[in-house]
Amino acid sequence: MAESGYQPATAAYGDRPQPAGLADVLELILDKGVVIAGDIKINLLEIELLTIKIRLLIASVDKAREMGINWWESDPSLSSNGPGKIERSGGDSNGAKGELGQRVAALEKQLAEVTDGKATTGTKGNR
């Protein structure tokens, strides 16, 4: 089953043209497109229910945004589909990310030194 194109509905916010998310796709292929009566009828109730679920999710995100409850967008740890959002929220999170990145790198270096030392000692001790 091809699911590679599946994107969470909240991926719909960005500043550049992007491939359609699942919500857009469902709208395009359920509400639009040529209707030719096939001779096999398929009950699309389940797909329509899925559409409604996704729309409700989007509406609730929209509503929250309208009310200014959009704190998760500036919190990198909470915005899962990051790039667009982090970019949009400006230098702050990038700066924070850079600083964090440096600290992580420094800590990793320290850790490597420590474990190397231990490993050497351990090997010596065991033999």
């Binding site: 089953m1 699911e3 590679s4 599946y6 292929i29 389940e46 797909i47 899925l50």
Partner: peptide, 13 residues
């Protein structure tokens, strides 16, 4: 849901 979403995405793709 995942199967259904996959079906829709595959038609679209």
């Amino acid at each position: 849901e995942r199967w259904t979403a996959g079906l829709a995405m595959a038609h679209f793709n």
